[in-house]
């Protein structure tokens, strides 16, 4: 479907690009959020990335998957935006306290939603490169080589970042659940 849409866009059917936007917008938003950690900025990043992808579509030669090519544009755009906004503004200094402070049990309905909430909150509190690596590798199921192509990190560096990301994720979630258990014990 996407291949057909690409052919149609290159053939002059501008509106066919809507199919591509529909197909990738949620994943693109997830990836942008990994880096910029702000809904409105992530929206701008995704929008710029799609417009840039449209303008450069003729340069897509099909050597890699279209999603890999698109996410590379997206990640470049997200890190460019991050540099513009300033790194300090977007990272929290005390992940655990923020997580607990924002927690409201009334907001969550079941275990699945609760898990989704905490996983996404943990990702929000991780460094951009770590949360990006986790989303690309585990959620989008990209290979190490593809993650490396998208991010321009070496494969070795990607492995190291993924390793650190797994540790960070476990630490944030483990600390939270330990704290939650203590509050119940009281």
């Amino acid at each position: 479907m996407v291949d057909e849409a690409i052919r149609r866009v290159l053939g002059g059917d501008r509106d066919a690009f809507r199919v591509i936007v529909c197909e990738y917008q949620d994943m693109a938003y997830s990836i942008a959020m990994s880096v910029v950690k702000d809904e409105l900025i992530a929206r701008d990043v995704v929008q710029h990335a799609f417009v840039r992808a449209y303008n450069k579509l003729a340069q897509f030669r099909g050597d890699a998957a279209f999603s890999t090519w698109l996410y590379k544009i997206l990640v470049n755009e997200a890190f460019r935006m991050l540099r513009q906004q300033g790194k300090d503004k977007m990272t929290c200094t005390d992940p655990l306290l923020d997580l607990v402070r924002e927690y409201d049990p009334r907001d969550v309905v079941d275990d699945q939603q609760q898990r989704q909430y905490y996983v996404n909150e943990a990702l929000m509190r991780m460094p951009p490169n770590e949360s990006l690596a986790l989303r690309l590798f585990y959620l989008e199921e990209k290979s190490l080589k593809e993650v490396s192509q998208i991010t321009s990190w070496s494969v070795e560096n990607t492995k190291v970042i993924l390793y650190r990301a797994r540790i960070s994720m476990r630490m944030i979630l483990h600390d939270y659940f330990k704290m939650e258990k203590q509050s119940f014990d009281l």
Partner: peptide, 28 residues
Amino acid sequence: IRELMASARLELPFDDFEDSVMEHINRE
């Protein structure tokens, strides 16, 4: 982690996003 990350997908919370991208492209 693989199991946890399965629930990490976010949905774009802006209904007009598609239209906004297409409008931008049409302007360009």
